[in-house]
């Protein structure tokens, strides 16, 4: 979606700008809102991230300073968690895309002639939102637990080693992330595929392309806006997610992500500067990655 806006400004000729006090006035609530609820906390966060421990203070007492070493320390201490966060988020995004594309294609293209089926399937995609995401994740924890039907049957069929388990492993965390973000991938994909002009596909076959080539050269490029929007909507929250990887949900001690580190520093260790520095690193890293991605996925070969 962010991408769609980006694309249209590039493609359309610049309209002449007129300064209008009314427009400015109408923008005021939005600007005030951003200043109050985005800019102020952001500045406060940056200031906190530079704090130094108070010399005679107790645990959790910090003074304002310019202690930029906080950033070095947290990167040294937590670089595995930073890499792991982006690794898991990337895996979850790829899996979500692989699962969602056929679903979205079916709903948006194949089910076009049957509006009832189409709406029903869309409701099914959205249905999980009716239940809290925490509860759904807890339910998966039960389903994947050691003595659950799934795991015991897999073991009985010798598809799984007798001492193997899912709960608390990276597999479970990536699984949880993928599951939780599939709707965010499916819906943007559906909106672009729903508008896919099938005459292009016919034209492709008329030019002797086989179905795979048509898919690769026609369908995918035409659905690129949906892919970009979906991957962004999945990747960004997945990288910052701390529920799935939490030890209380699907994770274990070796699957902790950046969100969990921030939580521990904030609530248990009362190391607010470290928590703030990590938050800023997370934000900056996502910003850079997304920027590169949007640039690379290219406005030029899209529209």
């Amino acid at each position: 979606m962010a991408f769609a806006a980006f694309a249209t400004t590039e493609a359309q000729p610049q309209t002449t700008r007129r300064k209008s006090p009314i427009a400015l006035f109408l923008l005021l609530p939005g600007i005030l809102y951003l200043v109050l609820f985005f800019l102020t906390p952001l500045i406060s966060l940056i200031l906190t991230s530079l704090q130094a421990p108070s010399e005679f203070g107790d645990i959790g007492v910090y003074d304002y300073a310019f202690n930029w070493q906080n950033y070095v320390t947290v990167i040294q201490d937590y670089w595995p968690h930073i890499l792991r966060s982006f690794g898991y988020a990337l895996l979850a995004t790829v899996f979500a895309l692989l699962f969602s594309y056929p679903i979205a294609y079916f709903i948006g293209v194949k089910a076009r002639r049957r509006p009832l089926l189409q709406s029903l399937l869309l409701v099914l995609v959205i249905a999980p939102f009716f239940i809290s995401f925490l509860l759904r994740t807890l339910a998966w924890k039960q389903i994947l637990s050691d003595e659950s039907l799934i795991i015991t049957s897999l073991k009985a069929l010798s598809l799984l080693a007798p001492d193997a388990y899912f709960a608390g492993t990276p597999f479970a965390v990536v699984f949880g992330l993928t599951y939780n973000f599939i709707p965010f991938m499916t819906l943007p994909l559906y909106t672009t595929l729903e508008r896919l002009d099938t005459r292009y596909l016919e034209a492709g076959s008329d030019l002797y392309a086989n179905s795979f080539t048509v898919f690769r050269k026609v369908t995918i490029p035409l659905s690129m806006p949906g892919i970009v929007a979906g991957t962004l909507l999945t990747f960004i929250p997945a990288a910052g997610d701390y529920v799935n990887a939490s030890r209380d949900f699907l994770g274990g001690p070796d699957t902790q992500m950046m969100g969990n580190v921030i939580e521990a520093n904030f609530l248990v260790l009362l190391n607010y500067p470290a928590a703030a520095a990590l938050s800023i690193i997370l934000m900056a890293a996502i910003l850079v990655l997304v920027g590169v991605y949007v640039k690379r996925s290219g406005t030029e070969d899209l529209l």
């Binding site: 200043v35 800019l39 102020t40 906190t48 003074d63």
Partner: peptide, 18 residues
């Protein structure tokens, strides 16, 4: 401005404490 005052408040609430 509003931002500055919010910052000042934030500074009061967490700083010091001695």
């Amino acid at each position: 401005g509003a931002g500055a005052s919010a910052l000042a408040l934030a500074a009061c609430s967490t700083g010091g404490g001695q």
